[in-house]
């Protein structure tokens, strides 16, 4: 077994009196796709926000690629190799599609000069299926296409770990299949992924392993099939009656 790329130990975060994340411990292997699932408000996005230093944790250690990243500013976490998308899509409005992705390329872990970066941006836009729309203002794209831009922006950074926060939510069945294929193609590149997702079909077909959160605690861990048939998980999602 190789050394994990990300190690999270005893992570905790409290908002007011509410424990959003409660002594959470998990690891992500190199090239692994980890599903982070659980009902709304179970602390999934909070975990992602702590990992990317959007806000600090109250306790716990996070090591990434052998380095402690707690206390680093957000931009250094990104340069260290963790890139993310946002739950509610956040394109850089007023800028072109290509420039949106270019930002990720020249400031992320890739840190490439502008001229070669532009070439790479074209490739990435082709990859996510926006090849012909590089010079359009990003505001003019549909919601789904803005999600593609965001994925390209995250990939442009050359991350070792990619955090997808409900990236597949809100897609229609055709788009969903295309999205799953796209994410699957990323797995082939040795990229580790944490997938926060409610679309169970996507979780089943993409994740190597899943952990299930309720109230900030891990209640189950294992393969998607095993986890999704687990009685406690069903109870967490559907309430006591449903199980």
């Amino acid at each position: 077994m190789s050394t994990p790329i990300l190690n999270v130990t005893d992570l905790s975060k409290t908002f007011g009196g509410l424990k959003a994340v409660d002594a959470l411990t998990f690891a992500v292997e190199q090239g692994e796709t980890l599903g982070l699932i659980g009902p709304n408000g179970s602390g999934k996005t909070t975990v992602l926000n702590i990992l990317t230093a959007a806000f600090p944790s109250d306790a716990g250690r996070v090591t990434f690629d052998g380095n402690e990243i707690a206390g680093m500013p957000a931009y250094r976490v990104c340069r260290a190799g963790i890139a993310r998308t946002f739950q509610l899509v956040r394109p850089l409005k007023g800028m072109s599609v290509a420039d949106n992705v270019l930002v990720g390329r020249i400031y992320g872990a890739a840190a490439e000069p502008i001229a070669p970066a532009r070439k790479k941006v074209r490739e990435l836009l082709d990859l996510v299926g926006l090849g012909g729309r590089a010079e359009m203002p990003v505001d003019a794209l549909t919601y789904i296409d803005q999600k593609r831009v965001e994925l390209a922006r995250a990939l442009a950074a050359d991350p070792k770990l990619l955090l997808l926060d409900e990236w597949l939510a809100g897609l229609n069945p055709t788009e969903l299949e295309a999205g799953i294929t796209l994410v699957r193609s990323l797995k082939g590149r040795g990229l580790a992924i944490i997938l926060v997702e409610h679309v169970m079909h996507a979780v089943r077909s993409l994740c190597d392993r899943c952990i299930v959160l309720t109230a900030g605690r891990c209640i189950a861990e294992g393969s998607p099939e095993a986890v999704l048939t687990n009685a406690e998980v069903k109870r967490a999602y559907l309430g006591d009656d449903g199980a």
Partner: peptide, 13 residues
């Protein structure tokens, strides 16, 4: 100017 949060998560100091 467009979105400072995205900017810092994209690696901009």
């Amino acid at each position: 100017g467009a979105d400072e949060t995205v900017a810092k998560h994209s690696g901009i100091n």
